[in-house]
Nucleic acid binder design. Structure first.
Length: 467
DNA sequence: ATGTTC
């Protein structure tokens, strides 16, 4: 058998070598060249029928592997141009965030998207990005801090009745900040989320259970915070009379548990798409009709419930210390994916730093450590995929903030607004964020503002560059 | 965002 005959069959290098070996065996068995070429064509047409054994099994396996790569490449190909998507507050958004969103809208699984006015560059999908996909979930479309969320408790206390030093003492005693931190054993609290059978369903969840159990009720680091402030409710709402209330606002996530879930499934998604274009590598997805997609979906939702449980424990601890029961509570996740009907399709809507804003849905949009946050009610805007911003959004990256701003500037800003800060880093300075008033003004068709919250005593993690 | 990454 001449190699040329095999090239003519359209075989590639490795397959040619395997075909040559098989052909030699068949020639020894007395078959003619034409007989062998016919057999080879049959193997080519249906390699799966030959993998069980026999002289053609190695060739058949190689052909199947090649086909799988081709199929994967075909299924991972980006569209030549991004699908169009609406942007809110384009004048506030860095071109880099648009570039990232453009890549996301070129994914073959993408169907719709939107950019919120707090958008800025992140890993994979931009922060403030909303992306709807079909039968696919993108771990980096949710983000590292799965289930990152906000919670507000409105307390039956006059804003002036809690002194600044008392508020600071409470926050220091009843919250825990920092990467890797957990509550001391005697202070550890239980929550029903830790008793779910879900933890037994996957090895990774079993593995992370102990970490989750020790860290529950903690706040973490980065932009996470716990703060007392003054809630101003101009009109009767939330079952409350108009007026001013002492309130507790927290920003926290799924801690080490969620971060490790995110890392695990991002790596898995990348293995699903080995031929994905480099610019879209961090947007690798998992098919939802595949066990890996189902596993992520389960773990993601558990991390979402766990993050909200964190908030509930933080609020319960502080409310108990104050000997009060909250008058009302509002909470929302802003790093998560949801199944959502979009037109005729049920899509997977990823919100990575975006507040769900279905018609009538309550949400929380914080400003910065010294700027007001807002309680909002969604207007269910279809084009925004029922979403709004999740905050003010960065205008300076962490490095830029650290090199541009100094302690004095930040202290002056805090003093000017009567804010007392415990912990905090320069990279979280109010000046590192967009003006929340501008961001809110760009999304009046997405949410109604129903109350504002002015921070008074704020606790954050100690940054690398303290304030 | 996370403890400190293959």
């Amino acid at each position: 058998m001449n190699g040329k005959h095999l090239v003519k069959l359209g075989l590639e290098k490795k397959a040619i070598a395997l075909a040559q070996t098989a052909a030699t065996t068949r020639e020894t068995a007395g078959l003619t060249r034409d007989d062998i070429l016919n057999e080879l064509r049959a193997v080519q047409q249906n390699p799966a029928a030959y993998t069980a054994g026999g002289v053609y099994a190695p060739l058949a396996a190689e052909l199947l592997a090649q086909q799988a790569i081709l199929d994967a490449r075909k299924g991972s190909e980006l569209r030549p141009a991004p699908l169009p998507y609406p942007t809110w507050g384009a004048d506030l958004i860095d071109p880099g965030a648009h570039r990232q969103m453009d890549v996301a809208m070129r994914l073959p699984v993408s169907r719709a998207g939107a950019l919120m006015p707090d958008a800025h560059v992140g890993y994979g999908l931009p922060i403030g990005g909303v992306l709807a996909t079909e039968n696919a979930v993108i771990p980096y479309g949710v983000g590292v801090d799965i289930g990152c969320s906000m919670m507000l408790s409105i307390l039956p206390i006059q804003p002036g009745a809690l002194r600044t030093d008392e508020a600071g003492t409470l926050l220091l005693k009843h919250t825990r900040f920092g990467a890797g931190v957990a509550f001391e054993k005697r202070d550890r609290q239980d929550h029903e989320v830790l008793h779910e059978s879900t933890w037994d369903d996957q090895p990774i969840l079993q593995h992370l259970y102990d970490k989750a159990a020790t860290q529950i009720g903690t706040s973490g680091s980065g932009n996470h915070f716990a703060e007392f402030g003054t809630l101003t409710l101009p009109h009767a709402d939330l079952g409350l009379d108009p007026g001013e209330y002492l309130a507790l606002l927290t920003h926290s996530g799924s801690r080490g548990f969620g971060a490790q879930v995110a890392g695990h499934f991002t790596a898995l998604a990348e293995r699903h798409h080995p031929t994905l274009a480099p610019e879209a590598k961090k947007l690798a997805w998992l098919p939802l009709d595949h066990e890996d997609g189902q596993a992520y979906w389960q773990a993601m939702n558990l991390a979402g419930r766990y993050a909200l449980a964190n908030h509930h424990l933080i609020h319960a601890r502080l409310a108990r210390a104050l000997n009060v029961t909250p008058l009302a509570q509002v909470s929302n996740s802003h790093n998560l994916a949801w199944k959502q009907q979009v037109g005729d399709l049920e899509l997977i809507v990823h919100r990575k730093g975006a507040t769900p804003a279905t018609h009538g849905q309550l949400g929380l949009i914080p400003g910065s450590m010294a700027d007001p946050g807002f309680v909002v009610r969604g207007l269910g805007h279809e084009g925004a995929l029922h979403s709004a911003s999740h905050g003010a959004g960065r205008q300076l990256g962490r490095k830029a903030a650290t090199s541009t701003l100094n302690k004095k500037d930040v202290q002056a800003y805090l003093t000017g607004r009567g804010v007392t800060l415990i912990g905090g880093g320069i990279d979280e300075a109010p000046q590192a964020y967009k003006r929340i008033e501008d961001v809110i003004a760009r999304q009046t068709d997405l949410v109604d503002v129903i109350a504002s919250f002015q921070p008074r005593v704020v606790r954050m993690d100690t940054g690398s560059e303290d304030i």
